[in-house]
Deep mutational scan, measured.
Amino acid sequence: GGHPVTTQMVETVQNLAPNLHPEQIRYSLENTGSVEETVERYLRGDEFSFPP
């Protein structure tokens, strides 16, 4: 991942996926670069990993 992630982006995802840890959200956003894509992954039931 190398996309810039803002606190705003993390908070937006958190509102839609409250049971995800912020670190999981941030890591996913760094890989996708997209709030929409991260939320899609969540709704699909994809696994969210923590940063290594």
Rank of each mutant, 00 (worst) to 15 (best):
S28T: 03
E36T: 11
I25H: 00
P18V: 08
V39M: 14
Q14P: 01
I25N: 01
E47Y: 14
G2N: 13
E11P: 02
G45V: 00
V39D: 01
R44F: 04
T7E: 14
G2K: 15
Y42A: 06
P52K: 07
P51I: 05
R44W: 04
Q8W: 13
Y27L: 09
E47I: 14
E36A: 12
V35R: 00
V35K: 00
T12H: 14
E47S: 13
P4N: 13
A17C: 15
E40P: 01
V13Q: 02
G33L: 07
H3P: 09
T6F: 07
H3A: 09
E47L: 12
G1C: 13
R44E: 04
H21Y: 07
T6A: 05
E36N: 10
T38I: 05
E23Q: 10
E40N: 15
P52M: 09
P52Y: 09
R26G: 02
V5Q: 03
G2D: 10
T6P: 05
R26C: 08
E11K: 12
V5D: 03
S49H: 13
G33R: 07
T6D: 07
E37F: 07
G45L: 02
P18N: 06
N19H: 11
I25Y: 01
Q14G: 07
E23I: 09
V13K: 00
L29F: 01
S28Q: 05
M9G: 02
E23K: 08
N31T: 15
G1A: 13
L29S: 02
P18C: 10
E11M: 14
V13L: 04
G1S: 13
M9L: 05
L16A: 09
G1F: 13
S28F: 06
A17L: 13
H21L: 09
I25G: 00
Q8P: 06
L29P: 00
E40K: 15
G1Y: 14
S28K: 02
V13E: 00
G45M: 03
L29T: 01
P51F: 06
E40M: 15
N19Q: 10
V35Q: 03
F50R: 03
F50H: 05
T38V: 07
T38W: 03
I25V: 06
H3G: 10
P52R: 07
R41I: 07
E47C: 13
N19F: 11
A17M: 08
R26F: 07
N19R: 11
Q8T: 11
R44H: 07
E47V: 14
I25A: 01
V35Y: 03
T38E: 00
V13P: 00
S34N: 09
E30A: 12
P22T: 09
F50P: 03
V35T: 06
P18H: 08
G1P: 12
T38R: 00
F48S: 01
V10T: 05
S34I: 02
Y42T: 01
Q8L: 14
N15M: 15
E11S: 10
T6W: 07
T6E: 04
F50T: 03
S34R: 03
Y42D: 00
Q8S: 12
Q14M: 14
G45Q: 04
P18Y: 07
Q14I: 09
P52D: 08
R44Y: 04
